[in-house]
C-alpha cells in the first residue's frame, strides 16, 4: 500500500528524517513510536505530501503503486482523502468552527465523489454512525463547539473515512483525550481498519495503546528508523538500546511503581542541529561503543524485523 525508500527530510536546522525505508501492506496496522521530536509526524506528513515548505525531501515514496517521489501539491491533492487520509492530535481545533458537522463531512463527498447533496447527507450520517457518534442525526446540525473532544475526534475520523482511503494515518489521535475516551478511540480505529481492510499507521508514544492496536511496530529516534518488527516481539524482546529504554521508561499502572522513581532514558532529545553524525542515539545510549557517534549503524535482521545498532553487528 505504502512503500518508502531512503526518505530524508532536510530542514535548515538539520535532518528531521534520515534515510527511512518502510512499507505498509494493505490492511496492515503499523505502530510508529518514539519520543517527541523523533520525526513521527514528519514521516506521516511526508506520506500526505504535506511536509512544511522548509523541508527538502529526498528518497522515494510510492502510494498504492503510484510513485509520488517529488510530486507537486497538485499531484498530491487528488490522493489525499481518497488514497491516504490523516487525523491529528488536537481534535478541539481541527474542525472549522463556522461549519456544521454535517456540512464538514459532506464536503469531500460532494467535491471528490461528486455526490448529490441528498446522497452526501445520507452517506455522512452513515459515516458518523459508523464511528460510534451518539445521536449522529442531531450532531449533523451542530457546530464543533457544541461537541466534546472525543466526539470531535470521531467526526474527524468520519471525515477521514469519507472517500474510503486505503491508508489512515492517525497522528497521536488520543493524546489530547482522557484515558477512557482514548481507549475507545483506539479500539474504534482498530475496528474500522479491520472492517474496511484499511491500513492504519498509528502514531503514538503510548506503548500500551500501540500494543493493543497494531501488528507491526516501527521505532523512531532522531529521524532514524531504529527498529522494526512484530509489535508483540519488539515489546517483549527489544533489540535496540533505544527501544529498550523506551519500554523501561513507560509509565505503568502499577501503583507501587509510581511511588518509586520511574526509570527514564537519561538526557533529553537533542535538537535537530545537535544530532550526532553516526547513531542518533549516541550520547544517551548506555551501551555506546567508540564508533557509535561517528559511524551510522546498518540495519541488522532481528527475529521479526530489523534494528540499526552496532551491537547487533555479527562478529567477524
Amino acid at each position: 500500500m505504502i512503500r518508502v525508500e531512503g526518505l530524508s527530510a532536510a530542514l535548515p536546522q538539520g535532518q528531521a528524517l534520515r534515510d527511512v525505508s518502510l512499507s505498509v501492506a494493505r490492511g496492515e496496522r503499523l505502530g510508529l513510536v518514539g519520543e517527541s521530536g523523533s520525526g513521527k509526524s514528519m514521516l506521516g506528513l511526508a506520506l500526505m505530501g504535506m511536509v512544511p515548505d522548509a523541508a527538502q525531501l529526498s528518497g522515494r515514496i510510492a502510494l498504492d503503486g503510484q510513485d509520488m517521489t517529488g510530486a507537486t501539491e497538485a499531484a498530491w491533492q487528488p490522493l489525499r482523502a481518497r488514497k491516504v487520509a490523516m487525523i491529528f492530535q488536537e481534535p478541539m481545533t481541527a474542525l472549522d468552527p463556522l461549519v456544521r458537522i454535517g456540512e464538514t463531512v459532506m464536503e469531500p463527498l460532494i467535491l471528490h465523489l461528486k455526490m448529490r447533496r441528498r446522497d452526501a447527507r445520507a452517506r455522512a450520517l452513515d459515516l458518523l454512525a459508523e464511528t460510534g457518534l451518539t445521536e449522529p442525526e442531531a450532531k449533523m446540525r451542530q457546530y464543533p463547539h457544541q461537541l466534546s473532544g472525543g466526539q470531535r475526534q470521531r467526526v474527524l475520523i468520519a471525515l477521514a473515512l469519507a472517500c474510503d482511503p486505503g491508508v489512515l494515518i492517525a497522528d497521536e489521535p488520543t493524546t489530547a483525550l482522557d484515558a477512557q475516551i482514548a481507549l475507545r478511540i483506539t479500539d474504534l480505529l482498530v475496528r474500522l481498519s479491520r472492517d474496511r481492510g484499511m491500513a492504519l499507521i498509528f502514531i503514538s508514544h503510548d506503548l500500551a495503546a500501540v500494543a493493543r492496536a497494531t501488528e507491526r511496530l516501527a521505532v523512531m529516534y532522531g529521524g532514524d528508523l531504529v527498529e522494526t518488527g512484530a509489535t508483540a516481539e519488539v515489546l517483549a524482546n527489544p533489540r535496540h538500546p533505544y527501544t529498550q529504554g523506551l519500554i523501561a521508561a513507560r509509565p505503568r499502572p502499577d501503583p507501587a511503581m509510581i511511588r518509586k522513581r520511574l526509570p527514564v532514558i537519561p538526557g533529553t532529545v537533542p535538537t535537530l542541529g545537535d544530532l550526532p553524525r553516526g547513531c542518533r542515539f549516541a550520547g544517551r545510549c548506555a551501551a555506546e561503543l567508540p564508533r557509535c557517534a561517528g559511524t551510522r549503524p546498518a540495519p541488522w535482521p532481528t527475529a521479526s524485523g530489523q534494528a540499526a545498532c552496532h551491537l547487533l553487528e555479527p562478529a567477524p
Partner: peptide, 9 residues
C-alpha cells in the same frame, strides 16, 4: 482546521 481541509484533499 486549515490543515484538516488540506488533508481532506
Amino acid at each position: 482546521f486549515v490543515r484538516t481541509a488540506r488533508a481532506t484533499g
